[in-house]
Amino acid sequence: MKLETMYQEIILDHYKNPHGKGLREPFEAEVHHVNPTCGDEVTVRVHLEGSGADAKVVDLSYDALGCSISQAATSVAYDLIVGHTVGESFEVLSAYQEMVQGRGKVEPDEDVLDDAVAFAGVAAYPARVKCALLGWLAFKDAVAQADENAPELEGQA
């Protein structure tokens, strides 16, 4: 059934037990994003070491109010980003964004996406794409604010 395709166990697990939730110090930038159509909100802080694509994301801390998809997506983002470089994180984000915006026509690359591949089912529901991207795009924004040498995200204007 389609519904279960979107609500994978792993998504519900992250929703129930989010990883890395809570706002922590230190951080170089904090951003607050809302989805104005539904009111979902997320606050994201990043703590970077270094600059540019090679900067390491030492911490990504967040507080969020929202549906299972937005909450779980932010929790998975935490897992996939912390300890990696900004360049690597942006590569995952690009692939992830392409997948969820792909209307089901994009074959996800599991090697790049790891657990985030669980969100492939969201692509069938355009109304939920914003939920799946809320935390990730907040992260991207926070990096841009924290580091003026932050790389551009692939495929972004």
């Binding site: 519904l3 979107m6 609500y7 539904c38 979902d40 929202g66 549906c67 299972s68 998809i69 529901y125 939920r128 939920c131």
Partner: peptide
């Protein structure tokens, strides 16, 4: 159950 999730069901 978040409204978004409920409406999906």
């Amino acid at each position: 159950v978040h409204p978004h999730d409920a409406s999906q069901v």
